[in-house]
Design a protein around this nucleic acid. Structure first.
Length: 432
DNA sequence: TCTGGGGTCCTAGGACCC
DNA sequence: TCTGGGGTCCTAGGACCC
């Protein structure tokens, strides 16, 4: 049996932890640049505020109903997430952190000790609430896809008190019938359209299709697995996350600029900044990258014909996590794709082909000593930044240009709350 | 007329997820 | 005026190899 634990309206819940006055009020959290809605309280959902909608479009609705608006505060959300995951990892045999606000648990063998899994899940739910004030729902089922589906129903059905286990054929069938096909994990916009056109509108109808049909209609082996999982046959195993951290297979740092940029030096400065951020993430998970991609994009929304994005992919001479070396390659990559006169709105750096740092083959002509010195230098840099705050020590290339007090790629963040749990200056003061 | 077959690696692009 | 960011997996097709 798998359990899926999902934090309800996670970002909104995090804001509510430190501002209890927000309880029962409509609240939303915005993406970077205050661009889109990325988290909504139930009250905001009820008002018709849609997920992913651009803020400027829903602004009238939001103002009319006095919806409270927040810019995203990832320092806070990341820390709250760690607290929730840490507790769950202490009670379940194995945990797979699936995203910042969700994890799968392996419940194998627990039934024998604890009897009822839903009862056990209910105590976990209470404990998470007591320890973190984050509400969660828990779905339990024989496959990950069904656990997702159970979780959704647990969330939507108040009588279930946040927990649902699908442990019989009748319950599975009932749950499938309750679920619109577009709400199945793995069915997105494209597939939903296709399925509706063929008269398939519920998960139950999808589950009654053959594997071969699914393979043909839903992108090959992925679709086949999806249908099998709905039928109750596990196709995806739990991928345990070691000590509560996720090791990624690729790392990205990308941003839409606060304003359109057409000067090479400013875009180059942004790309350098993204590169150093990505390199930090890379070292934090103890990896080195073999492939570096730089891309720059023009507006997707204007009259400009596609392609809007140009990218350069470099295979590095040797796997590295050295900021200086990555900066050199990133500069070369950018020069290859730069179009004079173009107006760019977004850029990014991606690191792929990750391997464990220190395992890479020695460069034939680089003295070993020098490589070691670089590794030490990077470790010191990370230590200083950890101690004195992000960006305390940087490569000159990743600094804002002379005379620019604000980095041009930093957009708006009008309504950001303090980093209550990760920054001494932002610690909440309680007056006696 | 007839013109192997099987494997690997790489890239681009599509679809999905939170 | 204003439309996020960071991931995953899979497929198809081309190049190349023996």
């Amino acid at each position: 049996m798998f359990a899926l634990v999902d934090c309800n309206s996670f970002y909104v819940s995090c804001e509510r932890v430190f501002q209890p006055g927000l309880a029962n009020k409509p609240v939303v959290v915005l993406s970077n640049n205050d661009g889109c809605i990325i988290s909504r309280s139930d009250e905001a959902k009820a008002l018709g505020v849609r997920m992913g909608e651009p803020y400027f479009k829903v602004k009238p609705l939001i103002q009319r109903h006095g919806v409270r608006v927040f810019s995203s505060n990832y320092a806070l959300y990341g820390d709250m997430s760690r607290r929730v995951m840490h507790y769950l990892a202490s009670v379940a045999p194995e945990v797979e952190i699936y995203s910042i606000d969700e994890c799968f648990l392996d419940l194998h063998g627990l039934e024998a000790y604890h009897g009822s899994l839903p009862k056990l899940a209910a105590t976990w739910r209470e404990q998470v609430m007591r320890r973190t004030h984050i509400p969660v729902c828990i779905g339990i089922a024989p496959t990950k896809t069904l656990a997702k589906l159970a979780n959704r129903l647990a969330k939507k059905t108040p009588a279930l008190k946040g927990v649902l286990q699908l442990n019989s054929e009748q319950l599975r069938q009932w749950a499938l019938e309750q679920t619109p096909v577009e709400d199945v994990w793995g069915i997105g916009g494209q597939y939903a359209q296709k399925l509706w056109a063929q008269g398939i509108s519920t998960a139950a109808q999808l589950a009654s299709q053959s594997e071969g049909w699914a393979r043909k209609q839903l992108g090959g082996v992925v679709g086949a697995r999806l249908v099998r999982e709905l039928q109750g046959t596990p196709c995806y195993a739990l991928a345990p996350s070691e000590d509560g951290s996720l090791n990624r297979k690729s790392i990205a740092c990308t941003r839409t600029f606060g304003e359109p940029l057409s000067e090479y030096t400013r875009v180059a400065s942004a790309v350098a900044y993204f590169t150093s951020k990505a390199a930090e993430k890379l070292r934090r998970q103890g990896s080195a990258a073999n492939v570096l991609t730089v891309f720059i994009s023009k507006s997707r929304y204007g009259t400009e014909p596609p392609p809007h994005t140009h990218s350069a992919v470099l295979t590095l001479p040797t796997a590295t996590s050295d900021t200086g070396e990555l900066l050199r390659h990133a500069r070369a990559a950018l020069r290859r794709i730069w179009e004079p006169g173009a107006v760019y709105r977004k850029a990014g750096v991606l690191l792929d082909g990750l391997e464990t740092a220190g395992q890479q083959q020695l460069l034939l002509f680089e003295p070993n000593e020098q490589a070691e010195r670089r590794t030490k230098l990077m470790a010191e840099l990370d230590k200083l930044n950890q101690r004195f705050g992000a960006g305390a020590v940087r490569f000159a290339a990743a600094l804002p240009l002379k005379g620019e007090y604000v980095m041009p790629w930093v957009g708006q963040s009008q309504w950001q709350t303090p980093a209550y749990t990760t920054c001494w200056e932002d610690l909440l003061c309680i007056q006696a």
